[in-house]
């Protein structure tokens, strides 16, 4: 499969990519070295996804790609072509927050808030795969998301409570 490329007068190639972000399809022209997080933030104005270390250590840029959490700072935009991306903006339905978002608010799991979007995306992926996780499983799922304020206790509580609430709704 080859990708359509446009070369400008300086010899820089740009590629046409199509991303499905939060259910909407976007076609964008990107350079080969553009990373996904910059397309989301700069081109699509989806600034809920944060940039921290930009080296894949901190997890603040976590988004779901085809349902799996990945660090969007280490995914080239051209490699996300044709993939389904979910960002923090894709969780709330109109004015209705996602159960996880509600739970984070109710459990004071947000302090400065910088890690929160990534943290919630990792938790979202966990609950989609495992609706009734143990505390250990929650801790493992968010191990790639660093929080330097709250110390994880309330974050873990929030995820467990959201799982419980979701299970309750299903029953």
């Amino acid at each position: 499969m080859s990708m359509e490329a446009i070369t400008d007068k300086h010899g820089v190639k740009r590629y046409l990519i199509t991303l499905n972000v939060n259910g909407d399809s976007y076609t964008k022209v990107v350079k080969g070295n553009t990373v996904l997080v910059n397309v989301l933030r700069d081109d699509l104005d989806l600034t809920g996804t944060k940039k921290g270390c930009e080296l894949g250590d901190c997890g603040s840029c976590t988004v779901l790609m085809d349902g799996k959490p990945v660090n969007s700072c280490l995914v080239l935009a051209v490699e996300a072509d044709g993939r389904e991306i979910t960002t923090i903006e894709g969780l709330a339905q109109h004015e209705q927050l996602d159960r996880l978002q509600d739970s984070f608010v109710n459990h004071a799991a947000v302090q400065c808030g910088y890690c929160t979007p990534g943290m919630i995306m990792s938790a979202k992926a966990l609950l989609s795969k495992n609706p009734d996780p143990t505390e250990q499983e929650v801790r493992e799922a968010i191990a790639g998301n660093l929080c330097r304020c709250t110390g994880y206790v309330n974050i873990v509580k929030a995820v467990l409570a959201a799982a419980k609430a979701e299970g309750g709704a299903a029953r």
């Binding site: 894949g56 997890g59 976590t62 790609m65 799996k68 959490p69 990945v70 660090n71 280490l74 995914v75 990792s122 992926a125 493992e140 799922a141 191990a143 790639g144 998301n145």
Partner: peptide, 9 residues
Amino acid sequence: MANNQVRNT
């Protein structure tokens, strides 16, 4: 290994 995001990539 690493963390979940890195294990997915």
